[in-house]
Every structure is written in structure tokens, then in C-alpha cells.
Design a protein around this nucleic acid. Structure first.
Ligand code: MN
Ligand code: MN
Ligand code: ZN
Ligand code: ZN
Lengths: 135, 135
DNA sequence: TTGCAAATGCAATATTGTTGCAAATAGCGG
DNA sequence: CCGCTATTTGCAACAATATTGCATTTGCAA
């Protein structure tokens, strides 16, 4: 993987400052970013342009779009997202931190007929070492 | 399972016409309903009251709330929350439906030192039989 | 029957995302 | 390098979904 500009070029889309900055933000983020998150990181960018930039990154395959538990779209760099496939995460309910665990991912359960599995995630929640000590 | 009124009483919430009608609608629906769906089924009900009724059913464990692929909340009748402890759910990313699986819940993985486990959830996502066919 | 906490109805507001359109510009052919 | 053109951007208006404030009504238990 090269610079944001390289990624954009090899994805076959125009290289614009906005796309470079947004893609950089997604690549260095430790979790999927909402539109509001990106806006906070790039305060000079236009709101609507950000929506369109994010969607263009999804359209060319450089980003993934998913809905979070609150119904808000979140965007992640495709490369980064792939790094976290197939392993288990611990979510601290105090600080919100997400930690990668060494445990193997669970095996997919038997599904009813016609159901299609897209993703399986073992979500372990509790308090991290830091928060357990101070809390 | 008894009438909607019985379910509401045993869930420890006030029995109101709105709650009875909404719970009936959720119980007889073949898939998770959005606020707009419920509004279409009960055209006389107030929009905001409908939002609050749906949330109250979730709060007392009679309904489950999930987000569909468009970021819209969808609600489905559930048996009492207790019934759903200790087994795995399948979440349809298209329609937002929540389905109970037969699989046993996974055993907790080894946590780093100092971490405290509160809850463990196996999140299985994909498309249900209905949405796989039509989608 | 009465009292009161809970629920409701309605208006206003918030949050998130989309559309229309004119101005700017990235990348291409020349 | 230069100009052309389709794409992208900026801004305003709009749309869809959800929440908040508050006065009124109601379930239900004493
Ligand atoms: Mn990870
Ligand atoms: Mn269940
Ligand atoms: Zn923590
Ligand atoms: Zn479905």
C-alpha cells in the first residue's frame, strides 16, 4: 500500500485534496469513522462534499460503509478493515476502547435454511485493565 | 404467550391501548417493523407516541430494537428478554430482523491481565431467508 | 373514588443524509 | 504546456428519521 494518492490512482478515480485527506483519515483511524468524525478531523471541508467524498471512496472500493448501533453510517479504509477480520475484540464499557484479543474467532453456528452469513463477530464487553484499576 | 395485555402486565408496565395495538402489530408481523411500518398499520396513533411506545416495549423486554441497512430502527416482538439469554441471535442486515439460533453461546476467551469481563455476545450478521430470496 | 406517576398529543427542534445547480478543477488529448 | 470537458466541489434548500418540552389525559393502586 502506498500513499493516499497512489491508492486513489490505482482505484481509478481522480486524485483530489479532499479525497486524499479523507482517505488518510480513514487509514490512520483506529475505528470506523462517522461523517461527523471526519468533519471534526477536517474542519475546513464542506459538509456535503465530505458525504460525497466518503461515498466515492466506497464506490471505488477503497472504503467500506456500515451502519453502527445508533443507525449512523461509519466508514473504514478497506485495507484497515481487513486487518481486523476474523479475530475477537474486547470493548471497554468505561472508556470505549477496543482491544484486539488473541483468541480464535468462533466457528459459525448452523443457520436456518436460506440464511446467508456475512459476518460473525465475538464481542466481549467489560472494563479494560486501566479502567478496572482506576474505576 | 397470552394476550398483549397479559404480556404487558407481566412485563410490569401499564397496559394502554397504544401499547396493546403496537405489541399486537409486532407479534403478528413476519419481519421487524420500522416506525413508519407501525404508523402505516395504526394510522390514528400519534407519531411521537409511537416512538415512545416502541421504546417502552424495548425497555421492558417485550421487543428487540435493531438497525437495518439504511440506518433505520426496526422493532420485533420478542418473548421476555430472559428467554433470549444464553443463546445466539442472527441479525439480518437487510431488514433488521433478529432471529434466535439454536447454537450455544461461546465460552469466554482468555483476557489480558486486569481485564474484567461483563458480557459476551456472539453477533452473527447476514441476510435472512426472506431477504436473501428477494434481494 | 381519588391522587398521582406515567403516558399521551402536539409543536418545535435535532440529527443525519440527499438533491439541484452554478463555479472550480483534475486529467486528458492535442 | 494549453485548453476542453467530465468530474468534483461549495452552497442552499430539502428530506427523512428521531428527540425534547410541556400541557393534558389516563392507568391503576391506595
Ligand atoms: Mn482487531
Ligand atoms: Mn433469542
Ligand atoms: Zn477502559
Ligand atoms: Zn432480512
Amino acid at each position: 500500500m502506498g500513499t493516499a494518492a497512489d491508492l486513489l490512482r490505482s482505484a481509478g478515480v481522480k486524485v483530489t485534496p479532499g479525497r486524499q485527506r479523507v482517505l488518510d483519515a480513514l487509514c490512520s483511524a483506529s475505528q470506523a469513522l462517522s461523517h461527523a468524525d471526519v468533519e471534526a478531523l477536517l474542519p475546513d471541508a464542506d459538509r456535503v462534499t465530505l458525504y460525497r467524498v466518503l461515498d466515492s471512496l466506497v464506490a471505488c472500493g477503497l472504503a467500506l460503509k456500515a451502519v453502527d448501533a445508533r443507525g449512523v453510517f461509519r466508514f473504514s479504509a478497506s485495507a484497515v478493515q481487513r486487518q481486523h477480520e476474523g479475530h475477537v475484540h474486547f470493548r471497554c464499557t468505561d472508556c470505549g476502547g477496543v482491544f484486539c484479543l488473541e483468541a480464535a474467532p468462533p466457528s459459525p453456528p448452523q443457520l436456518p435454511h436460506g440464511f446467508r452469513l456475512a459476518e460473525i463477530a465475538l464481542d466481549v464487553r467489560g472494563t479494560c485493565a486501566n479502567c478496572s484499576r482506576t474505576g
